[in-house]
Nucleic acid binder design. Structure first.
Lengths: 185, 185
DNA sequence: GTCTATAATAGGATAGAC
DNA sequence: GTCTATCCTATTATAGAC
């Protein structure tokens, strides 16, 4: 039995790269095989459920990342401004400064949306709730805090689309830069 | 020779519906055939270049719609507020109150992005320039007008993603409602 | 755990009848 | 202008060797 070339997490990370580049439907097993360096059959060894199971594993991995890089800072210590700046740094890295697409944003298209709608809805709501918490701590009233948080997520998603549409990361950079003022100011 | 069942424009409209639902890669000829009610071969009669030519025709049709429903009002008469409200009404209809996805937003994913990058970039820039023009007419300085216009497009795109992600059109409705204040106020 | 081989299906595209 | 029939390729998935 040959030793595994990649840990399961490493495989999932590479799958994530493919799904966020191509979306769900267009991420063929050939692409996923190329992205991971594994043959198609090896992918079925890790994920007997095929592509859907791969996507669910990727989803869980992103959720795990978000817990560590986004929600842990949000629940951490320090001023809201300081904790938000940690979140922004994490987002900037995750999205490679606006060059990489959002997995969630790609999964709202086509049949993937119905396939993953529960997880999608939960992920968006969790992110908005987390950001709203920071705004509340600044003394912003509940209603306003929620809407600022929604606006922040809307802007991040939109900036990724526009930045890719015009092949220029500037809109994404501007959105991140203004996020502290828009959410907490 | 049987008479055409649908005008070419009608065919393209139905193709638009399929491309905005599924994106480019996942809009298979089977789906496009079902959406138009035409057999695969009939689609090749209209579009000898296959799926890419279909998508380009859809792109041109959306551009034509934008000229009439967005850019004509922008260049029209009346106060900037009044002209913007015409644009917002057109966007609300086009996106079905947030229920329908954006063709442009779907085409920035995967290989479609490189395939259509020139048209994508031009379309986004044209829309931002048009909205910036309205802001300038309100006396907003050039730099600020441009960034407000970019922010407006960012918010619209992002709201479509979030609304679909949480299966709730409220974020899209809120963005349209606040657009006058955010762009011109 | 990885591979080659293979099956079955769906995809894009073309030819030709009517 | 539309259809059926067809071709070729790509795709998903499985079987079995090592």
């Amino acid at each position: 039995m040959p030793a595994p070339l990649l840990s399961r997490d490493a495989v999932v990370d590479r799958l994530l790269g493919a799904f966020r580049r191509y979306g769900y439907a267009a991420a063929s097993l050939g692409e996923l095989s190329k992205a991971t360096g594994l043959g198609r059959s090896s992918l079925y060894h890790y994920f007997p459920g095929g592509k859907e199971e791969m996507a669910r594993a990727v989803f869980d991995r992103v959720d795990q990342w978000a817990q560590e890089a986004v929600f842990a800072p949000i629940r951490g210590t320090g001023t809201p401004e300081r904790r938000l700046s940690q979140v922004i740094a994490a987002l900037d890295t995750y999205y490679a400064g606006g060059a990489e697409a959002c997995l969630l944003g790609n999964l709202v298209v086509g049949d993937a949306r119905t396939l993953f709608q529960d997880k999608l809805s939960a992920a968006f709501h969790q992110l908005m709730d987390g950001l709203a918490q920071l705004a509340r701590e600044k003394g912003i009233p509940e209603r306003d805090a929620q809407q600022r948080a929604e606006d922040a997520v809307v802007r991040i998603q939109g900036a990724l689309i526009v930045s890719r549409g015009i092949s220029d990361p500037a809109p994404f950079r501007r959105v991140l830069k203004r996020l502290p003022q828009n959410l907490l100011g």
